[in-house]
Nucleic acid binder design. Sequence first.
DNA 1: GAGCACTGC
Length: 658
Amino acid sequence: MAISNKTTGIRQQREQLPIAQGKDAIVREISTNDVTIVLGETGSGKTTQIPQYLIESNVINGRIAVTQPRRVAATSLAARVSQEQGKPLGSLVGYSVRFDEKSSHATRIKYLTDGMLLREMMSDPLLERYSAVIVDEAHERTLRTDLVLASLKTILKTRNGDIAKKAGKQVGENPLKVVVMSATLDAEKFSLFFDNAKTLYVKGRQHPVTIYYTTTGQTDYLDAALRTFFQIHLDQPPGDVLIFLPGQEDIENLNSSIRTHAARLPIGSPDIVVRTLYASLPNEYQSKVFTPAPQGVRKCILATNIAETSITIPGVKYVIDTGKHKEKRHISAAKGRGADALLTVDITKSSAVQRAGRAGREGRGFCYRLYTEESFNKMPLSSEPEILRTDLTTALLQLKCVGQDMEDIDFMDRPDDVAFHSSLQTLLFLGALDRHRGLTELGRQMAAFPLDSEYSAIMLASISFRCTSEILAILSLMSASSPLFPDSSTEREAASEVRAKFGHASGDHITWLNVMRAYDEYGTHSADRRAWCRANFVSERALRDASDIRRQLQDMCEKVGIDWQVSAGQDVAPILQSLAKGLLLRSALLRPDGTYKQSFGSLEIRIHPGSALADRRSPAIVYNELVTTTRTYARGVSAIPKAYIASLSIPIDAPQTT
DNA sequence: GAGCACTGC
């Protein structure tokens, strides 16, 4: 067959990428080293090209895994690379993300989320099905990226290093190549972690972006953003404007003030169309940001961090950066024992660079930073790695299952002993570990489910309480990425009135179950379901998400021989007993003044006013989470008999020093 | 009596 124009076009495009000039050097370095660090700016083509180079030059004869922090990245990269190879997606090039996989035995390059690679390690602890693992976007330092990096270091020792030699295996029998890819900030840390691994630099292709700073500090970033936007709009050439804001509330406020001001512009001024973008916005509204504005109209996009990495909007020439974002912070007590707060805080340098870069994707761009150059210089380089900020319980259990012990593992940044200890205590309490920190059979079963450890414990408890069907519905909603009852401040009273029919005296968990049951019975027609959700003030996204999760959990149950159809009927006691099994560390007891005190902690908490239990006094409760706003509130609350708490012996030791 | 940044299995 003659080479089509399309194929030659693609080849030309590949050859014109900045990385193409370095191809031979990259291939040579990777073939001679176990670990290679590639530092490449955005637009270099490293993620799409390097895997192809390794296959085309026969440096790698087996399979290559390329990890990504986000699902959309994994699927869209796979689509592009398989197109470049001129093969259908899922043959030579494939992907694997939760709920979706396109790969086959023929797949040589597989793009997958780092969470998916960790899952694969459960059945293949040395990742022997891969000859190379490429960890992309390593600079983001997500929890899962850090777990992958730490695991790879251990795996390398076994497959390539001393341990392989000692075992009498010929080194090189099935050696592993590791490539770590990162943006240019935080360079040598990866190299140091992998014993001074060779570092390659790849030029990017980004248009220049002019940065402007304010001369004085801004106290009101919304007002500053408003004024800056109209300055651009009235004085600067056409081009869309992207404004980074911390959250939905700011976005809505700025949206209305821009519209108000736009209406007062002199006749003859160009028109403005405002679009908003944040994760909890329904998809049909999110996709509106991609519609180009008509000729002569300027589009203004008000977005959260979602536009920093996850969603790329074409046509943006101007970026306004407020320098703020929201961050979940754990306050009071060890991780997982205290409360979380969502705070608006300053961004980091790498975040500021990333935001500015959004203006230079198609041509010369401009970034207006609503802070001084001095404050930029004072920003930390990048945010603290997630592994130092987050609860480690599930991560510890997963690593245990692949034969890696916390004590032996080398992390890029090692969490402190307090964090380890509280997670170990939780695992001990849930019965996943024994007193010698050994993995129990229960722990192994828990890790098999794609759920937080506490939720896995609930799931397994439901077998003996004979209510797995109900528990799967509840856990799926608890694991869904959006809340079932979104808080719409404008329709709060109407919403709570309509939702009351789902309410159950025992609390929120059974209330959610009632909603899921009603949704299940409603039918499968998507337009009907959407209307039903809207009429009942429940989140369709939460229910759709939960349905996907439940289906996955049902499949896993079938695989391991658990009958997920077992139902407790109308009896709620077994459901609450199962919940208590996993949530007892998140329980609290009523005090005479109507507030509650943690059973395993000292915080004074209140039931969140949006809860089904808000107006009741229950002697004992369990909750999903503690959030601190004006006060510390328990959300996702159910009343349990006080005896459940009293009767449990807690096998928790005092903290030990190691 | 109330305020949900962003990911992932």
